[in-house]
Nucleic acid binder design. Sequence first.
DNA 1: TATGAATGAGTGTTCATTCAT
DNA 2: AATGAATGAACACTCATTCAT
Lengths: 205, 205, 205, 205
Amino acid sequence: MAASSPLRPRKTPRQQRATHTVEALLEAAAQVLEADGLHGYNTNAVARRAGASVGTLYQYFPGKDALTLALLLREDRLFHDAAAATVALPGLQAALNAFIDVAVRQQLSRPNLARLLDEQEGRPEFRAALSGKYRFHELLAEILCKADAPARFQDAALRRLAADDLLALMRGMIDAAGERGERDADHLAQRIGAAVFGYLAAVPG
Amino acid sequence: MAASSPLRPRKTPRQQRATHTVEALLEAAAQVLEADGLHGYNTNAVARRAGASVGTLYQYFPGKDALTLALLLREDRLFHDAAAATVALPGLQAALNAFIDVAVRQQLSRPNLARLLDEQEGRPEFRAALSGKYRFHELLAEILCKADAPARFQDAALRRLAADDLLALMRGMIDAAGERGERDADHLAQRIGAAVFGYLAAVPG
Amino acid sequence: MAASSPLRPRKTPRQQRATHTVEALLEAAAQVLEADGLHGYNTNAVARRAGASVGTLYQYFPGKDALTLALLLREDRLFHDAAAATVALPGLQAALNAFIDVAVRQQLSRPNLARLLDEQEGRPEFRAALSGKYRFHELLAEILCKADAPARFQDAALRRLAADDLLALMRGMIDAAGERGERDADHLAQRIGAAVFGYLAAVPG
Amino acid sequence: MAASSPLRPRKTPRQQRATHTVEALLEAAAQVLEADGLHGYNTNAVARRAGASVGTLYQYFPGKDALTLALLLREDRLFHDAAAATVALPGLQAALNAFIDVAVRQQLSRPNLARLLDEQEGRPEFRAALSGKYRFHELLAEILCKADAPARFQDAALRRLAADDLLALMRGMIDAAGERGERDADHLAQRIGAAVFGYLAAVPG
DNA sequence: TATGAATGAGTGTTCATTCAT
DNA sequence: AATGAATGAACACTCATTCAT
């Protein structure tokens, strides 16, 4: 199952030790990004912080971008799993509020990491690799399908657009809040809720 | 009194030719960022596209960051000037809608540039240099002071927070729309309006 | 008395399984060189193709050079054994033609491998290890001693020089033919024969 | 005229200083190959020996291979120019002897360099770039057209094959002689002549 | 002053080799 | 003995910056 794409992980670790190493590398990458930003994010620094050598890093990742992508996917999966649980909540409002809450807490926990990864997601190299994964849009869209959602969101295209807008809106507000050093997740979630529900009520169909 | 800060332009061009060169360099920087992204943004490429030499670039800018900052300030000023005109419009709704419109049109004209500069604005090196300039927050805050705005925005802290939130929300939505290739500025502005006015109506005071 | 030279095989395999492993490694090395050239020739690739691990490779060979040398010796021995049989043939012409034929067939069977090994033979690290082995010169020189050979090859120095020249001439022509993709061994052998016999007839004594 | 192929020189030097630098880099590459072999041939070593920095090397050559190719072309051109002058000599024998002489002297002057470059010429990356250049075959073929050459070389295919064979034969003999440390160019040329004229007289048509 | 050649620290990546399991 | 994970020195290459002309 190992692949030779420049972005796919090089080999699936078979021994337990190897699994630990991969985990350590991803966590180190996250820490370096959070602490030192893109500027300090280089393969040697990541390996060092992971307590490994560069060579080890390259055993599992065919290049720096592959490491970044793996980290992106890891964070996205964390968010996706938590967000998926909110979809089932009864009622549009409860589900959306929970969704917002999950997003806020995830992004505020390591604000710099979250922001930098958001930026990385925009890179053309990653678009293809990310397009099929963790579709937050679809989770949101599913929420917008709920019985008590405005009727016009029965339209799939509109729903999709709304999901995109809301995700972007949330990301923008959370990233900015993180950059300002905000820590009060509840307050931020409330304000985001105001924008989100306002959007849903008023967006032209 | 001319300064030697690593971010301040090296010399204020007094001759017309010099002004022209600086303009060409900034425009070249903008074009490179728009077309090739951060990846292709290097001093040699900028100088080449400007029809100048690297040496010339360094005559006017003490370093790459100073060039980036100058570009940031240029774009910010363009936006600021257009946005400032909207503040005087009568009524909260008219002013805000105009403000949104200005923001959408500016950012959609060169979506990649806008997004990349947004990212750059977050860099610590630039925070100090940008903090005193072009305060979009204050423009927005001024709009929120209007007679027909919700009374709770008389509170300066709340107003400031709302302005921050709204700017972030707008940026998030416009950047994402630009990344998706959206071109219909009016439609985007309408959707942003929905979120903005919803936020203002519902944000907890 | 087993040695720890960096070129001598680490241990003489006594068990059959070990012999088999060593064979597999050598054959894998040959295949990698033939298919991927020097560029693809690395210990991990060789081990993988042999169905073994790098660790195993290093159990039998103290280093990459030792592996290369062993391969060189294996190929040389193959050639030597076949060539030695030609020496006994009656008459200079028959013997020489047979010798040429053997050389052509051996080198054309895996032209890239042959060429790359020829190049490796020149490396200083290998000179000493190869100098005492498989002396093709001596086989050729023996042929040049035959009764019907030109009388001036009674001189040992001249004979030795001629043997060197002829081997070099043959290698050069076969390598080039292999590189061009020639497959007709007989035709090539004929042309080589023309040069070889011409040389013997005319070389100044 | 600057190119973006990975093998074409990056920019044509315009200032005199730059021309000197390029010359120095090529000469340094030649010296490193001659003295330290492929093992010591790396871009930093070449730059250092040229009294330049790596960066300078990469201003003129887009990569190590491009440097190697440029050196190959330089050496080939030297040989080609000298060899071309021999074609006009009257008579097959005089021309061929002169050709051999030129080849021997060129290759013996820096035997290791000559051999290593011969090896490099075989690399697939270079085949295309070299195929249209300096066609020694054609020079030799021209010589084989002379009035006093065997009539069967009127056939173009046969002539081409003979030229290939003779070049290969010469290279093989000279490289081997160089490796053995031979210095007597005249003697070597005589022996090569024996093989060459023997080939021409006896090669099957 | 403008040019563009030169610099070299920094970074990504490879691969021969070692060693814990 | 065999495995394959880990190591790290070595090397290719970039690019912000300097400086001779």
